[in-house]
Write a protein that binds this DNA or RNA. Structure first.
Lengths: 209, 209
DNA sequence: TAGATTGTTAATCGATTAACAATC
DNA sequence: TAGATTGTTAATCGATTAACAATC
């Protein structure tokens, strides 16, 4: 499993959102301090792993006390860049695209999907969850105008590469790819593949034992 | 990263669906045989890794020729249990639940979501993507009657544990958990967590370099 | 002070990659 | 036969876990 430029292992990065969820709940439930053991128990991890992960976010705990919850939440959010606002366009207003346009959990993670795009002209001009749907032909123009750097790709596999090319040509720097197709993009564009069939595979194998 | 009882590494299991996608396309494009190198190039993997993964599915290739595509597809599907039909109930007919009820990619993976459940009585009795929505209070009864073993959990985090308990009590053996809450379940119940905030974290870190 | 908890350094474990023999 | 490709065994790499010193 790869590492990114900050030298933080990808598995650690993927656990950080879990920590945030647990910490926010612990903050409401109890007090100011939390130990690695408590966090670990809630997530089914080992305390050692939690301490190792925390070390990456540059937060320091206090022997005997643990970590200051509020500070920890703040640090993790800064580390992930979730304290800043990032704007995105979504292409492909099908079932999944519609769900993502309406998902209210992104606000907390610094992500705002400004608008949707679709090649089906019947959808163009409509508003879904309060967000306007534009024609794909206007993607380039609107990316430039709004300085958007992130594209959410929720089109069917057969259209995915074509739309990815449009995203790249328009200056998009990161693509959140829900299309279950492996994309060809220049090295300077970051792609995060999201594919639930991987999860279904693990579940299928588990159930068939 | 853990291993399952068949001794196949989880990362390998997660790659199998990717191989299926590529193989189906290769089958349409060209011929009968495919080499590990060709598969690898399409997915950005190394040929060695592809061969290693293939070995787990008990398929054998032929030196000089490669693997027989059709046979490979068949074997992988059998290995994943996707050749058989598995039936599921979905609880939580919000934006994401609705999208999953309408997703037509599951048929190919042996999964059929028979019906939806919701605690909001206004949704009960309606049909979404041709599937009836029942009250959660009838979950237990219908699981028994239809011998369903898989539950898809798409409720908000605050309701997730409660619904998971209902699923477990009803005899569900596997939970596909989209709630972004860590669930407490007995050891004999398998949980597969699906959480896009992990992916967003990786993307966020990548973009902030 | 004693005890609990952090943080770091070393050991282990497992997946990936490399090397190479086998073979069509 | 020669060359290409598989499959296996060994080496490497990186994440997790263990051990333990530091310290409030």
């Amino acid at each position: 499993m790869g590492r990114n430029d900050r030298g933080v292992p990808v598995p650690t990065v993927k656990r950080l959102p879990l920590y945030l969820t647990v910490l926010q709940k612990l903050q409401a439930e109890q007090g100011v301090w939390v130990s690695a053991t408590t966090i670990a128990r809630r997530l089914g991890l080992t305390p050692i792993q939690v301490r190792k992960d925390m070390a990456y976010t540059d937060i320091v705990g206090l022997p005997k006390k643990g970590y200051p919850i509020e500070e920890l939440i703040r640090q993790i959010r800064i580390f992930l860049g979730w304290n800043r606002c990032r704007e995105a366009f979504l292409v492909g207003v099908g079932a999944l695209g519609t769900a993502l346009l309406g998902y209210d959990g992104f606000a907390d993670k610094g992500l705002t999907i400004l608008a949707g795009f679709d090649s089906n002209e019947e959808k163009v001009g409509r508003h879904i969850h309060g967000k306007e749907i534009f024609s794909v032909s206007r993607f380039h123009e609107l990316v430039q105008r709004c300085s958007v750097s992130l594209g959410v790709l929720t089109v069917p596999p057969h259209a995915a590469q074509e739309i990815a090319d449009i995203m790249v040509d328009s200056g998009i720097r990161g693509i959140w790819n829900f299309s279950s197709l492996k994309l060809n993009v220049p090295q300077n564009v970051i792609v995060q593949d999201e594919d639930i069939s991987a999860g279904l595979a693990v579940l299928s194998i588990g159930l068939s034992q």
